[in-house]
């Protein structure tokens, strides 16, 4: 039952993601958004990311909530210092592995 539901989820998400991608490709520049709609759509990534990060980041480790918080702070500091995206991802993972190695001592 659960397996079937996961396949429905995969196909459903694939369809609803592909349709908005396909429309402009077929219409080739015939779409013009009015400024209000465009602004609303432009804002969605920011608000979606905000809602994704909080409170989800605190459950990166189900037992230790601060692990995710440390990771988020490390990523924020690196990004503030203009480190490239790929490097931020890798460095944050490395920092967390190091944090885990000292956790039992805390």
């Amino acid at each position: 039952m659960l397996i079937d539901q996961i396949y429905i989820m995969i196909l459903g998400c694939a369809v609803v993601t592909f349709i908005p991608r396909l429309l402009p490709a077929v219409l080739m520049g015939k779409i013009k958004f009015n400024r209000k709609v465009e602004k609303f759509l432009d804002l969605i990534p920011y608000t979606a990311l905000a809602a994704l990060i909080v409170p989800g980041v605190l459950t990166v480790d189900n037992q230790l909530w601060y692990i995710g918080l440390i990771g988020a702070v490390v990523a924020a500091v690196l990004s503030w210092k203009k480190v490239p995206l790929g490097a931020i991802v890798i460095l944050t993972v490395i920092v967390l592995i190091s944090v885990y190695s000292v956790v039992p001592l805390l």
Partner: peptide, 23 residues
């Protein structure tokens, strides 16, 4: 612990995408 550490990678990306805009 390594698996858990990889769990952070997408959150790290999300934070890293947001921070320059916030700045």
């Amino acid at each position: 612990v390594v698996t858990n550490s990889f769990n952070i990678s997408l959150y790290a990306l999300f934070v890293a995408i947001l921070v320059p805009s916030i700045k």
